[in-house]
Amino acid sequence: MSNPKEIKRRILSIESVIKTTEAMKMISIVKLRKTKNLLIRIKNYLCYMESIFFDLFLKKNEKEIEENKFFLEKGKMKLFIIFTSDRGLCGSFNSLIFEKINYIFHKKKHEKYIFFSVGKKGFDFLCKKKKYDIYHKNWIGNSSSNLQIQSFVSELIFDFLKEKFSSIYLIYNHLKKSLSQEIVIEKFLPIDSTNLNFQKKIPEISYILEPSRKRILNFLIPKFLNAKLLKIFWESITAEHTARMISMHKATENAHDIQRNLILNYNKERQTTITKEILEIISGLESLK
């Protein structure tokens, strides 16, 4: 049996753990609300962009689409962009991404590919595993601004058009309605016109295009790709805050269970000590008689 003083010290330490996990849970809830609002706006914007593509280009100009560089796959090198967190304490959010990377690496050994991380945890993982080639020596943090994301997308587009990559894939955590997560591998470039989502179709309009359809398409595609990457960026952050909120909630519940057990043990030890003292007093009185 443990010393009551030691048990009391452990109870106090568990109380401080509960305060910490509850505070982190509340912070994650506040951040989650903000990121959800941003994600809804970006999703609506991207939905209208896809509708414009469908209505303006994809329905009537299949040949023009097929000849466009953004829709063609050239080269051999594949780039995988992984979306991880900057910090830990978010359950299996990062480990599931790492498992998917290992699976890709072992399954497709003969193919050429390179990795880039959005998030410090993914960058540290890629640096530790020297077998993975990294696209840049730096990484993009989850606190990056939209302008930083936009400049990164411009760099990706430039390298893709220079045929440094045959294709670019995004690996991220997708949040389901049941608050569970699944790893999604989504093709970023070349654009697959068959996989565009058309949730809200804008009314069909007879557009007057100036200066030309081709130049407008080349102007809109970078905007579309920037919106798509931003959507996945904020979706990953939303999934991260959800995972951290759930893990902190579970940690708080486990800490409460440990605290209850410690209080029970403390009461037992205290009762045992009191019983021993009473027995000593009684035995002393008996010896005096």
Rank of each mutant, 00 (worst) to 15 (best):
I65V: 15
S151D: 14
C47K: 10
I18A: 04
I246P: 04
S145H: 02
E286R: 14
V17W: 07
F71E: 06
L264S: 12
S287D: 14
P222K: 00
P203T: 03
K120F: 09
N265T: 07
L285M: 12
I40D: 13
E240N: 06
R270T: 15
E15A: 06
S166I: 02
N68V: 04
I42N: 03
E204P: 01
E210G: 03
E286S: 11
T252I: 00
K31H: 13
E111N: 09
F93R: 00
S193E: 15
G91C: 09
S212F: 06
S236D: 08
S2L: 11
R213K: 07
C127P: 00
N44P: 00
G119D: 09
D55A: 11
R270H: 10
S166T: 00
G119T: 09
A251E: 12
T272L: 14
D159E: 09
F158R: 14
D86K: 01
F54A: 05
L175T: 07
E64I: 04
H256W: 10
F165R: 01
I29C: 01
I246F: 09
I274F: 13
T84L: 01
I27T: 11
G88E: 13
M26P: 01
Y113M: 13
F98W: 04
P4M: 06
S2V: 07
M26F: 07
S143Y: 11
V153N: 00
I149M: 11
K268W: 08
K187C: 08
L196T: 07
K74R: 15
L126C: 06
T273C: 08
F71Q: 08
L72N: 14
I114H: 03
F219D: 09
F105N: 12
I171D: 00
S51P: 04
S193Q: 10
I149E: 04
T35C: 12
Q150P: 00
H256S: 10
E99P: 03
K201V: 08
T21E: 12
K76L: 06
H249N: 11
I202K: 00
G122I: 05
R41Q: 13
M77V: 01
S166E: 07
F188E: 02
K137E: 12
L12T: 11
I202F: 03
K164S: 06
L96P: 00
S206E: 15
I185H: 04
K231R: 13
